[in-house]
Design a protein around this nucleic acid. Structure first.
Lengths: 148, 148
DNA sequence: CTATATGCAAATAGTTTGCCTGTTA
DNA sequence: TAACAGGCAAACTATTTGCATATAG
């Protein structure tokens, strides 16, 4: 049930998946491609609908499995906003997320938490390993919609 | 079905609830008290079990409703860690959460994101309204457990 | 031929809602 | 006795899992 192998799978994707003992299947390729095509941080369900345009037989469970594999092998990041559905992001550069309170959009900002937080000291005894910074506010469009 | 009114309800709690048109019921008081008693960021279910020790008849749905009221009126903060159950925090000072990867504990750090991020500039057109900073790492106990 | 992965459907976790009843002002 | 709230159970959403089948190597 694996269909045809993708014609031009970037070696790195295959290699990345191999690091967790997984192969590159057409579905995994398709799911990753959907994320690359429009990096607007879709939910699993949104990925499912977009992937179906190309592979109508793909199932939601498979999309979840593929996303999980892509996350585990380091090709994709998960973005959790409150309790709503997890969103997915193929941008693996360290960056900050901007959540627009107006339209609900998520934008990538080229800010690293580490840069911004250079002077930050942890309390004695705590060891910080990963800083995560998120920003809420209004995006360009929502601001002009408000003022205009 | 409201039982006995709490003997010494701080006026501020009553007032806060009033701002959203809600009264202070014994259950709401109890749920808030549970959070104050041990500010270890329990889940709704954990709050439920602790509240039952004092009011065995309280229901989980009521705990959810009470927590929701407390959050909406500004007495309690929600803390979302990945997809796991929402945790609750009665500390309304601006602060940063430290997530221990060792024990899963959540600790309040007296760091404000705003202080740390004074120099941060948003891309042109974006308006930052709320910065949220979270830190992952190892807490004191987990470090000594590792080394020791 | 065998390991791996898919698709489907059922299960699960966390949370919310509807409805009826009880309590308080 | 009206308005508000609680308790219970059912509903709901997002996600995961079990299982039979299909495919690639």
């Amino acid at each position: 049930m694996m269909g045809t192998a993708p014609t031009a799978a970037p070696a790195s994707v295959t290699e990345k998946l191999a690091t967790i003992g997984f192969g590159l299947t057409p579905q995994r390729h398709q799911v990753y491609q959907v994320l690359l095509d429009r990096p607007d941080h879709p939910t699993a369900e949104e990925v499912f609908f977009r992937a179906k345009e190309t592979r109508p037989e793909i199932s939601l469970a498979t999309v979840y499995n593929c996303l999980d594999a892509l996350v585990r092998c380091g090709l994709v990041n998960q973005v959790n906003v409150d309790r709503s559905a997890t969103r997915f992001c193929p941008n693996m550069r360290e960056h900050t997320h901007f959540f627009c309170e107006g339209c609900g959009g998520i934008f990538d900002l080229d800010l690293t938490a580490a840069d911004a937080l250079g002077g930050l000291e942890m309390p004695r005894g705590f060891k910080a390993m990963h800083l995560e910074l998120s920003v809420r506010g209004l995006c360009r469009d929502c601001i002009s919609r408000q003022t205009g």
